[in-house]
């Protein structure tokens, strides 16, 4: 028997370490989503046929949503900082051993890459915007007239998207004080989770814009209002099965990586074994298995498999479930990770 008692009662540290609250999971989720959108849009840009309408959802809407999501994520990260007015210090140095320093510089590069990707096809996607801002047409023409620039934008988006997606996991895994996060699998796990949420988001958008008989009734009003405002070209629902299929692949890799993550901990030291217990049998087990594995991975995998086999219609359900599962994964891993510790007992 070992009993450890401390006289320390520092706020956010004792009795349970909980320095990061909702802001960090929100940032990690949105960062992963943007990383996934960049990879999908980057690859699509590399193999793009400009006259194909399906390109619009990946190469224009994806990066546009990515720009908004990234800004929201960075704002969330800003809200978490204790010394907010000193945030600019991040950009006066580069600390090679700090994933957060890498991340802050990657985020700075992500904006122009996303913007270039979105601008390439923006005028044809949203003509109303192009007629109001003729410069957008010039920028688009400039990019599309230069195949090497398109190739560069595609490659940059893919590489930066992968870096952003992996970084969100590496950020946690290098923080050695929290045993649950000490796994190199966390980087690829967050990358594939980000890819699956991005594919799910794009799939959901396509489902909303399907022909009127096939799409959810509530989408009619939304779509007609948006179409009036933007004169946007209709999207091609033929891309929906491609995205659903890609999403299934990402989810399969994600669940495999989750298995490896837990296996790595269970077969490691007693400290890491105990940390994995938080997810396997401890206080985080029920939300982890029900919300992340059950509703966030298994259920959408099943629904999308049935959609692809033409047994059911494409619906919004798998998209919403995947995005919910991706967010739940981050909330639970951030919370459980903070609850894991090297010392066996406290207070």
């Amino acid at each position: 028997m070992t009993e450890l008692t401390y006289t320390r009662h520092n706020p956010l540290i004792d009795p349970i370490f909980h320095v990061w609250e909702w802001q960090i999971p929100v940032y990690l989720f949105l960062g992963g989503l943007v990383g996934g959108l960049m990879i999908i849009a980057g690859i699509r840009l590399l193999v793009l046929r400009p006259n194909r309408r399906e390109a619009l959802v990946c190469c224009t809407l994806g990066p546009l949503i990515g720009l908004a999501a990234l800004s929201l994520g960075m704002f969330s990260l800003f809200l978490d900082l204790g010394h907010k007015l000193h945030v600019w210090r991040l950009y006066t140095t580069f600390q090679v051993t700090s994933p957060m320093s890498w991340g802050s510089w990657i985020l700075l590069l992500v904006y122009p890459a996303l913007a270039a990707n979105a601008l390439a096809h923006l005028p044809e996607a949203i003509p109303a915007l192009a007629s109001r801002f003729p410069a957008l047409v010039k920028i688009s023409d400039f990019i599309l007239a230069r195949p090497r620039l398109v190739l560069f934008a595609g490659l940059t988006n893919t590489a930066l998207g992968a870096a952003l997606g992996i970084y969100t996991g590496i950020l946690l895994s290098t923080l050695g004080g929290r045993p649950l996060w000490n796994s190199a699998v966390l980087g690829p796990l967050f990358l594939f989770s980000g890819l699956s949420t991005a594919a799910a988001l794009l799939h959901g958008i396509l489902v909303l814009t399907m022909p009127s008989g096939e799409r959810p009734a509530f989408a009619d009003f939304l779509l007609s209002a948006l179409a009036r405002m933007t004169q946007a070209r209709p999207l091609d629902p033929a891309a929906a099965p491609i995205l659903a299929s890609a999403d299934n692949s990402f989810l399969t890799v994600e669940v495999s990586l989750l298995g490896l993550f837990l296996l790595g901990h269970v077969t490691s030291t007693a400290v890491h074994h105990r940390a994995a217990g938080l997810l396997l049998t401890g206080p985080y087990a029920a939300p982890f298995w029900v919300l992340v594995v059950g509703l966030g991975i298994a259920m959408p995998l099943l629904l999308q498999t049935l959609e692809l086999a033409h047994r059911i219609r494409h619906t919004l359900a798998p998209s919403l479930l995947v995005m919910f599962g991706g967010f739940a994964l981050r909330v639970i891993l951030v919370s459980a990770g903070q609850a894991s510790r090297w010392f066996e007992a406290l207070n």
Partner: peptide
């Protein structure tokens, strides 16, 4: 120089750090 990101708090296995009320 500190921005109060709390990464150092999470990295310390001894829980020896805290965030000062000034951030």
């Amino acid at each position: 120089l500190c921005i109060g990101c709390k990464a150092c708090l999470a990295a310390c296995p001894y829980d020896a750090r805290f965030i000062h009320p000034d951030g």
